[in-house]
């Protein structure tokens, strides 16, 4: 198998999943609307007072990002599992890890990327200081791919189950904690006008680790789930 055909397989899966996502647009839109609604619940539940909202903003945005990612995760493998496409992928002579990486990349492009683009707006709603905006974008850019990669493992493990939804969040959310800690702390630190290099390095390290190991675990989990 040449590198060119590997890359071609990766691109095909990526393009296929993007086409599918664009043809069922509500699947992209719904988690985003959820993201906005969850964030806007906090001023109503806690207090509209700007000082308080400013301090909780990083955490609120990140928790909402985690939850809305959870909602979109199932779409990575669910419909492909049901109509047999996943079987075909497992029977492709190309390594499953490459195909998984293609699918996860597509998932991130339709769920993570719009989240990043929307986040400054939500920052404004929660009175996040302007200095913290670059940190918000940077942590989301580094963190959301990790969420997609780790989430894919959880979906792969639960895809064969009829009611996998709640179980999926039980499996995946604890694994999201490190990303949550470093990302929301980075934003808060940036708001206090301090350097956030350390946090970003850590997020980048987690990204590197996830991108190398998660596709392996996902491919193994898919093989098990499809038995």
């Amino acid at each position: 198998m040449t590198n060119a055909s590997l890359f071609n397989a990766f691109l095909t899966v990526l393009k296929r999943d993007l086409t599918l996502a664009l043809r069922t647009r509500s699947e992209i839109a719904n988690p985003l609307i959820f993201f906005i609604i969850v964030v806007s619940l906090f001023p109503l539940a806690v207090s509209p007072e700007s000082g308080l909202l400013r301090t909780v903003a990083p955490g609120v945005i990140w928790v909402a990002a985690l939850l809305s990612t959870m909602l979109s995760l199932d779409s990575i493998f669910r419909s492909d599992f049901e109509d047999g496409s996943l079987e075909q992928m497992l029977l492709s002579p190309h390594p499953m890890t490459v195909l998984v990486l293609g699918k996860v990349t597509a998932h991130w492009l339709v769920s993570g990327l719009p989240l990043i683009l929307l986040s400054p707006l939500l920052g404004v709603l929660l009175f996040l200081p302007f200095e913290a905006m670059p940190a918000l974008l940077a942590t989301l850019a580094l963190g959301t791919p990790v969420l997609s990669l780790i989430g894919a493992i959880g979906v792969a493990l639960t895809v064969g189950l009829r009611r996998g939804g709640v179980l999926l969040s039980l499996l995946v959310l604890p694994l999201y904690i490190p990303v949550l800690i470093f990302a929301s702390n980075a934003i808060a630190t940036a708001a206090a006008d301090l350097s956030i290099k350390g946090q970003l390095y850590f997020l980048a390290a987690m990204f590197a680790l996830a991108v190398t190991l998660a596709p392996l675990a996902t491919a193994a989990a898919l093989r098990i789930s499809l038995r």
Binding site: I150, I153, T158, L161, I177, P178, L213, A220, I224, R227
Partner: peptide
């Protein structure tokens, strides 16, 4: 949640191994 014993054991093993990689990271963070 998984009915078939062998599938359940293997799926859980993958989860446990993912957890082992994550525990030091979680602990440190």
């Amino acid at each position: 949640a998984i009915e078939d014993r062998r599938t359940a054991a293997n799926a859980c093993a993958v989860l446990a191994l993912v957890g082992v990689v994550n525990i030091p990271i979680i602990h440190y963070s």
